[in-house]
Amino acid sequence: MNAREQLREYVFGTLLPMDRAGWPADDASLFDHGMDSLRLMQMLVFVEEKLKVQLPDQEVTPERIESINSIAAWIEEHRG
């Protein structure tokens, strides 16, 4: 699984779990699917610990965590 697939599995499988058949598209807004501050913090820890990518805190903005697409692009920028 690449980083985007792992992220999608984590977000829709664990963080905001929903029926696999109904998983939103990668450009769907996560804010419409129950993302809140506690879940955002958990997601950042997942990216750091499981995907081994450090995301700078100052870059955490609504635009970057809007969707799977935007998070994946952001992770890509910081891959070592």
């Binding site: 779990p17 109904g22 809140d36 506690l38 879940r39």
Partner: peptide, 23 residues
């Protein structure tokens, strides 16, 4: 029953801050 079905059922009934984190 499964987690995803229960979440979909609860979403119109309880606010996001009350949504269980672990099922």
């Amino acid at each position: 029953i499964d987690e995803a079905g229960l979440i979909a059922f609860c979403r119109p009934l309880v606010p996001t801050y009350m949504m269980p984190d672990v099922w």
